[in-house]
Simulated scan of single mutants.
Amino acid sequence: MPRRIQIVVISAVLSLMLFIPALPSQARDAEKQDKTAIVVASFGTTVPRAVEAINNIVDRVEKAYPQTEVRITFTSNIIRSIWRKRQIEAQQWLDQGIPEDILYVKNIISTIGDLREEGYRNIIVQPTHMFYMEQSHDLNSYVRALGSIETMKERWRPFDSVVMGRPALGMPGARYNYHEDVAAAVQTLAADAQLAASEDAILVYMGHGNQHWSTGIYADTQREMRRAYPDVETFIGVVEGHPSLQDVLDQLDATTRKKIIIKPFMIVAGDHAVNDMAGEDGESWKSVLEKSGYEVQPVLQGLGSNDAFADIFVDHIRDTARDHNLVVQ
């Protein structure tokens, strides 16, 4: 064989040998580029025992989508700053059972940035907020901004899609009827109604509310609770905005029962539940209701600890994935 042909053949063989081993690695990289990651976005809490409710939601999501990467972020700047200070004495908190991803929790930009560095180009952000109010609005602004980044060359775009699911009780828009989301959420609260019925008590929920947004979501939910559980008198008030505790007291005037089961209408039984709802000072809901002649039994358990309620977010992730042609499994 002429020398020139030998050189060409050897060169071709060497090139093939170099190319073949690269195929599996390239295939893995391409496969990872197509994968979708889930970010569970919670308002957060600083109360260690309340973390369990957030962990339960994350656990339910991971169980439903075991092959999909799941991360957590807190949307509250104040709560993240408190956990950042606690990192100075990290072992103390870890010894109390606080997971590392809570102790070292990051904001939404850092969390999504980490996923991008690891090769994920499709992100579903699932808020664990109750309804689409200030926190969800601002979170959606981040999500839309990150998902809209354009580059001169298409292949350098950081993400193919960054999208957000809807909160527990839904959000404005024509795609999903929030009344149906409210009805689905109410179905998960049967145990609360049963507890109140067994105690011949009124069921009072304390939500967070918002001073900047006015919605009828709490009135809608209260009405749906009474429709679903007609034997239980249910009232929902909020810490901020309306309906206030005074609004609840005004409605209670029409009742004859004198015992109240009071629970947080929040994902976690955090600071608001411990202090504003069940605290011993004179301004807490428990104290005010007791002064009004009611026997009050607080239940310090967030809705995130309720498996059926936590699964609402699992379902909303599935809806979002379907709407955007993403794969979660």
Results as ranks from 00 to 15, higher is better:
22 A>C: 04
191 A>K: 01
292 S>K: 05
316 H>D: 08
275 N>E: 11
14 L>A: 15
246 Q>S: 09
315 D>H: 13
201 A>S: 06
303 L>R: 01
35 K>E: 11
181 D>F: 07
110 S>T: 14
15 S>F: 11
263 K>R: 10
136 S>H: 04
7 I>T: 06
188 T>F: 13
120 Y>M: 10
310 A>S: 14
102 I>H: 00
282 G>K: 09
313 F>V: 01
41 A>I: 01
289 L>R: 08
205 Y>M: 08
208 H>P: 03
188 T>V: 08
237 G>P: 04
138 D>E: 15
172 P>S: 07
58 V>P: 00
80 R>C: 14
258 K>P: 03
182 V>E: 05
66 P>W: 03
86 R>V: 11
84 R>Q: 15
5 I>L: 12
63 K>T: 10
58 V>S: 01
230 P>K: 06
127 P>A: 13
275 N>R: 10
302 G>E: 11
66 P>M: 02
35 K>R: 02
263 K>A: 13
90 A>K: 06
192 D>A: 13
27 A>T: 00
28 R>W: 05
246 Q>P: 02
302 G>Q: 09
19 F>L: 03
241 G>K: 03
205 Y>Q: 11
44 G>T: 04
231 D>H: 01
47 V>Y: 02
293 G>M: 05
204 V>S: 09
119 G>H: 02
21 P>G: 09
311 D>Y: 10
316 H>Y: 09
29 D>F: 12
317 I>G: 03
4 R>T: 04
33 Q>S: 14
310 A>L: 15
138 D>N: 14
237 G>W: 04
247 D>W: 05
197 A>C: 01
196 A>L: 06
259 K>V: 11
285 W>N: 07
51 V>E: 05
78 I>L: 09
184 A>Q: 02
184 A>W: 01
95 D>E: 05
116 R>D: 06
53 A>P: 04
46 T>C: 04
39 V>F: 15
104 Y>F: 15
221 T>D: 06
164 M>Y: 03
272 H>V: 12
186 V>L: 09
208 H>I: 06
320 T>Y: 13
205 Y>T: 06
199 E>L: 10
38 I>A: 12
39 V>K: 10
285 W>K: 08
308 A>N: 08
261 I>Y: 05
133 M>P: 02
131 F>R: 02
18 L>M: 12
262 I>T: 13
102 I>D: 00
113 G>Q: 14
25 S>I: 03
278 A>N: 00
206 M>E: 08
102 I>Y: 00
172 P>N: 07
112 I>P: 09
20 I>E: 03
321 A>K: 02
254 A>K: 03
126 Q>N: 08
231 D>K: 07
315 D>F: 14
28 R>G: 04
132 Y>R: 02
178 Y>Q: 12
95 D>P: 02
136 S>C: 10
235 F>E: 00
7 I>L: 14
206 M>H: 07
243 P>S: 12
11 S>W: 10
65 Y>F: 15
329 Q>T: 08
110 S>K: 14
140 N>G: 15
194 Q>V: 07
126 Q>E: 13
216 G>D: 08
286 K>W: 02
154 E>L: 12
284 S>H: 15
15 S>G: 11
83 W>F: 15
305 S>C: 13
211 Q>M: 12
265 F>E: 00
39 V>C: 15
57 I>G: 04
286 K>N: 02
42 S>M: 11
242 H>L: 15
163 V>E: 06
239 V>I: 14
102 I>M: 00
120 Y>T: 13
50 A>H: 06
